[in-house]
Design a protein around this nucleic acid. Sequence first.
DNA 1: TGGTCTCATCTGGTCTTCAC
DNA 2: GTGAAGACCAGATGAGACCA
Length: 299
Amino acid sequence: MQRIKLDVFHSLFEKELTGNEIDFIIALTHLQNGRGEAFGVHYKEMCEKMDISVQAFYDCKKSLAQKGIIQVTKGQKDYDIVLCGNDFTSYTDRDYKTGNVPYIRTNQKLFYDVNWKKLKPAQKLLIMDLLNINEAGKFRTHRIKRENFIKKYANTVAEDGSMERGLLNINARTLQTYLKMLKLYFYVGIKDGMYLITLRKQFSEKVVQSEHKQTYEYLMKVACRRNKIKQPDQKEYKDILQLLLNYRKRLWESFINPLDIFPKMLLIINDRVLNPKKWIRRLKASLFHKLLREELGVA
DNA sequence: TGGTCTCATCTGGTCTTCAC
DNA sequence: GTGAAGACCAGATGAGACCA
């Protein structure tokens, strides 16, 4: 589920995040299921995905947990990470059709752009907020009075002399410099004291067409790593992946974690081998199907 | 079974960047 | 120009894997 709920996103403005922390959250949304759970997050994969150092991974994980943005559970060689509040299970298909699900998609080309990594945290949050506004407006030009734009994002002085904090907690001059950067991703113009901001079409395109397929492909990868299945049979692999996609709705409605089925499958395959070190570690789609149906209570 | 190697994780320090 | 914070590097340590 490559998306982040709008209220979760809005809460990020208060958390004083670093650039890497924002990228960490976005990377998590690429791995998470509909409950905001990312199982089997491995430091090496995240380092490669985000192009960060190993230390940066641990710094981000620790810091985001301390800020209450994620909940981390240590696995054997990886982590199960929950992006707090990013649970989409309460929404129905009808909610999506009627547009009652407020969220930001994170599978757009914008987030994979080479310049994205170089941006400052406040710049990333500004872009994401404007992206959301543009999407909500069906990519029509966003119009906002210059003074309102500054008041919304930058710190300003109120009439009584007190400081009013903007969303980005920066001064107006800094915000002005950010406008140059905004032009990377948006057409930005000013007319009659109004900013006209439109997302460049090429950055709104999806990188991954099927979110569900990507979610379950990742799950398969984690299952093989955790169960030490080093060279899985490709046919069995594809069959199990297809099973997971076929049973997606039932899995969605239940609290069954498909990852729990893989060790059970290995246990049955090796029922006569007492020493797990001597187990034959392979996938068997027919057996997986049987166990999955049992777990789901399907006759 | 014990020695060796590799991997995962953490700590402390330094360098770099950037807002003011 | 400066101070603060982010990002990264080097090294230490412990756990587990591997092999003779």
